[in-house]
């Protein structure tokens, strides 16, 4: 958990059979996506079978963790469950072409722009797990 920061309370992930590899990688500080062993395509969200070649053989591919914000939302009322501070959830388009919902950290809501570049890191959850969070990579002040 050396690469995982404590950023205050946040909820644990829901771990299912088909997504366990992702959350296990987070605990090692690795940001990954499902890769089909049949055709090498990447997929997110994970799924039991590749929709192109229908292989069920898959592995975890390391991603760059770089992406841009496509949209974002800050829940005000009711407050988000399990967070110490109001979170900012964002839809991120990753460099590899996948889309991923993550939490933005170290950013003022008013300074967020669609298209803003971000980089992944990891934050600890209340139950000792880890989830990806994203920070702006440019000076936006």
């Amino acid at each position: 958990m050396g690469n995982v920061e404590n950023l205050g309370a946040r909820p644990d992930p829901v771990v299912r059979v088909d997504s366990a590899f992702f959350w296990e990688a987070c605990e090692r500080g690795e940001f990954v996506a499902q890769r089909c062993e049949g055709c090498e395509r990447l997929w997110h969200p994970p799924r039991p079978m590749c929709p192109i070649c229908h292989s069920t053989e898959k592995s975890a591919a390391a991603l760059s963790g770089k992406g841009v914000v496509m949209s974002y939302v800050m829940p005000v009322h009711p407050p988000a469950y399990g967070f110490a501070e109001p979170p900012i959830a964002a839809l991120i388009e990753l460099e590899e072409g996948l889309r991923f919902v993550g939490t933005l950290v170290d950013v003022e809501p008013a300074s967020i722009r669609v298209g803003m570049p971000v980089q992944v890191s990891f934050a600890a959850t209340s139950g000792g797990k880890a989830v990806p969070v994203f920070r702006p990579t440019e000076d936006i002040t």
């Binding site: 992930p13 299912r16 969200p45 939302v73 829940p75 979170p87 959830a89 964002a90 839809l91 919902v101």
Partner: peptide, 28 residues
């Protein structure tokens, strides 16, 4: 599986999912 990929990040309500979905349109 959609809630699994939204809930831990703070997108936990229909209003939040709606904004993640429509935000790109509204901004563009």
């Amino acid at each position: 599986t959609f809630i699994e990929w939204c809930f831990p990040f703070g997108a936990q309500t229909p209003a939040a999912w709606e904004v993640l979905s429509c935000g790109t349109y509204l901004d563009t």
